[in-house]
Design a protein around this nucleic acid. Sequence first.
DNA 1: ATGCCTCAGCTCCTGAGA
Length: 259
Amino acid sequence: MKFATWNVNSLTVRLPQVLDWLQANPVEVLVLQETKMTDDKFPAQAFQAAGYHAHWFGQKTYNGVALLSRTPAANVVKNIPGFADDMARVICGTVAGTRVIGAYFPNGQAPGTDKFEYKMEWLKGLRAWVKQELAQHPQLVLMGDYNITFDDDDVWDPQGMRDQIHCTEEERYHLRALIALGLHDSYRMFAQEPKSYSWWDYRDFAFRRNRGLRIDHVLISNALQPLARNCVIDKAPRKNERPSDHAPVVVDLELTAAA
DNA sequence: ATGCCTCAGCTCCTGAGA
């Protein structure tokens, strides 16, 4: 049973690519980030026709998330309970006995800015909530666009990006603190090609030169860790015309619909 | 290079992304 995450950078632009991808990759769950649309614009019917139930939570211009699933999601939550936020960044639901959290982590812009401070506060709020969710739901997947690299292996130019946004020690501290709750970076559980990334800048032929970052992650709980079969970054959609700058990340778990 | 490319918006430039 496959669970996937994809930052689509405007669902208005990318909807045909998402539908094509779902047809080729009929995953159980797909969470989207940066839909960049208000709720009245969300293409629920197109997803229904493709065989997916949907929950969505968006806003104009920025942010926006969605949860697509083959079977209906239960106990849906939007944004982080207890953390006041103007931005639509989180959607959560239970599918196949598994708590699924899809998240668009703040970018943070640059260390020392207000946006960076917001990112740090948001990460604290997320962690407190995920800790509670884990206590109630041993089977949990936390996936999305984290806008944080774990270490130099996730960075095409570690020297050049040292202490830059996505690569600072403060951000990585929060990422490790999530891991310390009892989560695992499913991608690194398996042998991967060196220089594997999930995002490439639109500029300077960065994808062609593989100048990227691994900032999209699928974290799985202790209970799910022994059930993981594989985790891959699907670079195929990045080769489309007008691609998102991010690629989907897909984990395969040994779960059944009855689980 | 305080840019490069892409997207959205009170759209012919600007802010933001990462």
